[in-house]
Simulated assay, not measured.
Amino acid sequence: VALDQATIDYRVLGPEDSPHPPVVFVHGILVDSRLWDRVADGLARQGYRCYLPNWPLGSHTIPANPDAELSPQSVAAMIRDFIDKLGLADVTLVGNDTGGGLCQLVIDAYPDRVGRLVLTNCDAFDKFPPFPFTLVFALLRGPVSIKVLFEQMRIKALRHSPLGFGLLLKPDPQLTASWLEPARTDVRIRRDLA
């Protein structure tokens, strides 16, 4: 879906003629929609239409437009634009991690777009991002520092440590490596992340 700030790659699971309101997932930073696969698969089997976008949060493969602002408020507006562009109504918005914080911004600024909100462990209020990830984000100050940090994260033990994905999920080595690959190898994705 081509939006003003970026083109959003997404997948859809579940019946087109679902009697249930659509479900839109919002992942956190440095992961993509595959984080939600098991949940979306289960909901789709129960008849829900699920939308799994890859937001421009560092693991996306389509760079944002060069002049795009990617502040949390701008990404929240992008979520609204995604919902509008697809003509979705009465959406159930599901978010975790940074995505949960973004969902809170969406319902604050655009409450008419969302019928329900489901939040799992997520950022909120003055803990956006929470410790210890404030340390990691402090290192993400430009394409060079991002590349250096992500080159180090090629080491599985570091990638799966508490400074990587270790506190967040039961890591799958291939999946976590693929989440870091776009920012590690594409300067345009590093620009989006900076």
Rank of each mutant, 00 (worst) to 15 (best):
L3R: 00
L3P: 02
Q5G: 14
A6M: 06
A6G: 00
T7D: 08
I8A: 05
D9T: 06
D9Y: 09
Y10S: 01
R11P: 08
P15F: 06
P15L: 03
D17E: 09
P19V: 10
P21C: 12
P22Y: 00
V24S: 00
V26S: 06
V26R: 04
I29A: 15
I29H: 08
D32Y: 01
S33R: 04
S33Q: 03
R38L: 15
R38K: 14
V39D: 03
A40R: 04
L43K: 07
Y48S: 01
Y48R: 03
P56R: 08
P56G: 07
P56W: 01
L57G: 10
L57E: 12
H60W: 08
T61R: 15
T61M: 11
I62F: 11
P63S: 06
A64R: 10
N65V: 08
N65Q: 15
P66W: 06
P66N: 07
D67W: 00
A68H: 00
E69T: 13
S71E: 09
P72Q: 11
S74E: 13
S74F: 12
A76K: 11
M78V: 01
R80Y: 13
D81G: 12
D81N: 14
F82A: 07
F82I: 08
L86K: 11
G87W: 12
A89Y: 12
A89C: 10
V91D: 06
V91R: 07
G100C: 04
G101M: 01
V106R: 02
I107C: 01
R113D: 14
V114K: 03
G115P: 13
G115V: 03
V118N: 11
N121V: 13
C122M: 12
C122W: 10
C122A: 15
D126Y: 13
D126K: 13
F128K: 12
F128S: 11
P129G: 04
F131L: 14
F131S: 13
L135E: 14
L135W: 13
V136Q: 14
F137H: 12
A138E: 14
L140D: 03
G142F: 10
P143S: 15
P143L: 08
V148N: 09
L149C: 08
L149K: 07
L149E: 02
Q152G: 08
R154G: 07
I155L: 11
H160I: 09
P162L: 05
L163Q: 09
L163S: 05
L163P: 05
L163C: 04
F165C: 00
F165A: 02
G166W: 00
L167K: 08
L167Y: 06
L169N: 07
L175Q: 09
T176V: 05
T176W: 02
T176H: 01
A177K: 02
S178H: 03
W179Y: 08
W179P: 06
L180Q: 09
L180H: 08
L180E: 07
E181L: 06
P182E: 03
R184L: 10
R184S: 06
D186C: 08
R188V: 02
L193Q: 06
